[in-house]
Write a protein that binds this DNA or RNA. Structure first.
Length: 263
DNA sequence: AATCGTCTCAACCGCCCTTTA
DNA sequence: ATAAAGGGCGGTTGAGACGAT
């Protein structure tokens, strides 16, 4: 709670403060945010300065309403990544995670609900007469193995872990080194809800790889193929999905140790 | 014109990971 | 190995804008 310090200003930024911050960052560069206020002569906490710069003052920030293309991309990415706003924002030039998060919460989630789609799972909302099975419908997440290589050139990398795991880097913090691998032709998709561990075998890989490159190319393939991945049962290269449904507990039960590897 | 309810989004909060000493 | 600092993340809040009554 750095902003609660005595003498530290809070609330909306004034144009004068913006100018001080922007010119200072342009001159000195980003970083060292905690000491920036004193160096720049601002009565703000470092976090507030960083946020203001990242979400508002950066020259690369794009202004104006979200275009239909951007909206479509957000929807696709959210379907693949869940509430990983920084990752989503990273694929949409000029947009910030905060902006996308707000847009999602105020527009897109409601739009999906109106269309009868669960904004969390991107699956059809259950009918009002909820059965136990319907209410237990699990969330869909793609969770990228942190240190696991892709098993083959046309990979379907996915990973079982609870979404409560750390997602700040886009990988699960619970499962370093652990990777779920498809078994035979079995895939998980929206029409094939497995039990945790069904049709899957955990595999551990003990060599590292270029995470950025792998992740980037993998994400590109996800975006490009996302329609098929999700909706087309005949898709050959569809992405495997892992169903969350309290998966952390279930998977942990079946494969103890796997999910603690990163901690 | 006044009041109320809803919506929007900038800003803050609290947590946790990474880096540094 | 450990603690502290720095930084980044998603979730939440609240003030202002806006529309309905």
């Amino acid at each position: 709670m750095c902003c609660s310090k005595v003498g530290v200003k809070r609330g909306p930024w004034t144009p004068e403060e913006d100018e001080v911050l922007a010119s200072f960052v342009r001159r000195e560069g980003e970083g060292r945010w905690r000491t920036l206020p004193s160096r720049a002569g601002l009565r703000r906490c470092g976090k507030s300065c960083r946020l203001r710069w990242m979400n508002y003052l950066r020259p690369s920030i794009k202004r104006g309403p979200i275009s239909p293309d951007e909206e479509d991309l957000i929807l696709r990415l959210h379907r693949l990544l869940g509430n990983r706003w920084s990752l989503i924002a990273g694929r949409i030039p000029g947009r910030t995670d905060n902006e996308i998060k707000n847009y999602w919460n105020t527009h897109l989630s409601k739009k999906l609900i109106r269309q009868g789609i669960d904004p969390r799972t991107h699956k059809p909302l259950p009918l009002p007469t909820t059965s136990a099975a319907a209410t237990a419908a699990p969330a869909v997440h793609v969770i990228f193995p942190r240190q696991a290589p892709l098993p083959n050139p046309n990979p379907s990398p996915y990973h079982a872990a609870g979404s409560s795991g750390d997602i700040r880097t886009g990988f699960s913090a619970h499962d370093d080194g652990g990777c779920w691998k498809e078994s035979g032709d079995q895939f998980m998709d929206a029409n094939n809800v497995p039990e945790a561990g069904d049709h899957l075998e955990p595999e551990l890989y003990d060599f590292s790889f270029d995470e950025d490159n792998i992740f980037s190319s993998f994400l590109d393939s996800l975006i490009n193929n996302s329609e098929n991945d999700i909706n087309d049962d005949n898709s050959d290269d569809r992405v495997g999905f892992v169903w969350e449904k309290d998966l952390q507990d279930d998977a942990h039960e079946q494969f103890p140790g796997d999910h603690d590897a990163g901690n």
